[in-house]
Nucleic acid binder design. Sequence first.
DNA 1: GCGAGGGGATTGACGTGTCAATCCCCTAAC
DNA 2: GTTAGGGGATTGACACGTCAATCCCCTCGC
Lengths: 156, 156
Amino acid sequence: MAQKKRRTMPTREELRIWRDYIETAETLRTLLEGRLQSESSLSSADYRVLLALSEADRKTLRSSELAQLIGWQRSRLSHHLGRMEKRGLVRRAPCPDDVHGIDVRLTDLGAESFQRGSRPHLRDVRELFVDALTPEQLAQVDEFTGALRRHLDLEP
Amino acid sequence: MAQKKRRTMPTREELRIWRDYIETAETLRTLLEGRLQSESSLSSADYRVLLALSEADRKTLRSSELAQLIGWQRSRLSHHLGRMEKRGLVRRAPCPDDVHGIDVRLTDLGAESFQRGSRPHLRDVRELFVDALTPEQLAQVDEFTGALRRHLDLEP
DNA sequence: GCGAGGGGATTGACGTGTCAATCCCCTAAC
DNA sequence: GTTAGGGGATTGACACGTCAATCCCCTCGC
């Protein structure tokens, strides 16, 4: 550990592991995204929004809460909601309780799209990720992801 | 294993691990990319191109070889080279040996930018990724990444 | 020789994400 | 009351990646 702190550059081997790690995660994301798209015409961005909304009380969230929940910048959410609204998946309306603030509401079409996409997507996650790993490996993923998150201060 | 095959959906716990995994990798990528950008005004896409070129013989590669090496679609590479050329990082010229085919050449500015970005970038990788993990955890990452890659048929 | 086909590369249209600027409406200072 | 400021949200300009269409020039069959 002390020795590790003294080094500046990663070794060749560490670098290879890093590259494999990040590239594999990327590939996995892309594959899942492609399947989701062809199964339900939803991007993974759509999916995150729909997921958050469908778990929300009255299928509605304040725009800022939604951004907070899924960890997006305001402007990204705003752009994306605009596109989703155009496709009829969500609807925006001024929030009655608060003069600032916009309520984002799941439409029937949005709820239905999410339902339709959800099961195959979960199946895909099992197939491409969970099934690739033994239970021990899965536990290792959890462990080291936790270590990374703590290192990066992503944990509560 | 037999039991696993029979299930359709991942458990709640498996899903949590999946989400943490993919989200952490994504965050890490974004962080690294931001640092690279502010340290050297290079995107990680720029970096990959410059890395491949600077390791190449005569700092030059055929466009198609380059695409192959870094695993990009032709059109993505073409667009990106256009932008990089505009910034003076690379230069394109018809390939003398082959009537089809374009030679992509690292410019002096490109080589210098890469040099300048490289060390801090490697330091960042060590700091944000390698230092977060014990040697055992790093070995585990390698192991399960390998398992994933084999499952997805990404291995040679 | 000439037309079909094919590999190499580019282009255009489009959806997406980021950053910075802006807008809107409220609250608080004076 | 008028204005400074601040939180919530949108907008515009731009960089990026993807897909499908296209272009270019060669090779091969005839």
